[in-house]
């Protein structure tokens, strides 16, 4: 089972996000990036499939400030190849990123592409489904369980309320991973440092994919912060009435 994991780096949401003067994008001067948490799960699922069934895991990421570290970390965790894609704009849309990833994936031998189901910045759609569409591959997203069943891959796709749909798909296929079966593994810093000395990242320069998001951000802003709870007063009966009304309005 040869698996490709296109990794998205996203701004670290723990830090404060600033918006540029034009109010059309984040102020990218001081952003720090990290691996999208769902991509970390996709990588984990890929590595556990490799451990169980053999094969290889290749990771791909578009060049950002922290890409080398993310790719070396993936190698330290057990990935076999790491490819850095250069020449893609900082503010590239999901469509553009997916197209750039496809340029690399297209030249690889693989059975599965595992992506994170979504990312904090995919304003124009989730990258995994876009990759599948550009490569004309079947896809299932919001997947939490991947199992090899003979020639087929059996997956569970999560719906609301804990209900899941079971699918079988014949490789090649793209799966958008919601959660790996186990918590993403940790690579000790010493191991990452060692890999940085031993391994080299492959580099591919992306060509213009000829696609755009098809939309323009005219205004980006921070939503208003609440000023604490609106307190509901009255008897238990009256307060219950008010809460019921709020809940009913919400539920529609």
């Amino acid at each position: 089972m040869n698996i490709v994991v296109p990794i998205k780096l996203v701004p670290d949401l723990v830090e404060e996000l600033e918006i540029n003067d034009e109010e059309t994008d984040l102020d990218r001067d001081f952003l720090s990036f990290r691996i999208n948490e769902f991509c970390d799960h996709a990588l984990e699922e890929a590595l556990s499939l490799k451990e169980a069934h053999g094969g290889t895991v290749a990771v791909i990421a578009i060049e950002r400030e922290e890409t080398d570290k993310v790719l070396y970390t993936a190698l330290a965790k057990g990935a076999d190849r790491a490819v850095k894609v250069t020449g893609v704009d900082e503010a590239a849309s999901s469509h553009e990123a997916a197209k750039a990833m496809c340029q690399v994936i297209g030249g690889m031998e693989y059975d599965l592409v595992l992506t994170g189901v979504q990312a904090a910045d995919d304003r124009d759609g989730q990258m995994g489904v876009l990759i599948a569409s550009y490569l004309d591959l079947p896809h299932v997203s919001v997947v939490s369980d991947v199992e090899v069943k003979g020639d087929l891959i059996a997956v569970h796709k999560e719906y609301a309320g804990g209900v899941m749909a079971a699918f079988e798909v014949a490789p090649k296929a793209v799966l958008g991973i919601q959660a790996a079966r186990q918590t993403p593994r940790y690579a000790p810093v010493s191991r990452v440092r060692q890999i940085m000395k031993e391994a080299e990242l492959e580099e591919v320069e992306a060509e213009d994919g000829g696609v755009t998001s098809g939309s323009t951000v005219r205004r980006m802003y921070t939503p208003e912060k609440g000023e604490g709870a609106e307190m509901l007063d009255g008897s238990a009966e009256e307060v219950a009435e008010k809460i019921a009304a709020i809940l009913n309005e919400r539920k529609g």
Partner: peptide, 23 residues
């Protein structure tokens, strides 16, 4: 933008070459 919709919207965008805004 649900589990089902996420499997449709981006694919539709590519097949129809139409813009998609998500979330």
């Amino acid at each position: 933008n649900t589990s089902m919709g996420m499997d449709l919207a981006a694919g539709l965008s590519v097949r129809r070459n139409a813009p998609l805004v998500a979330y």
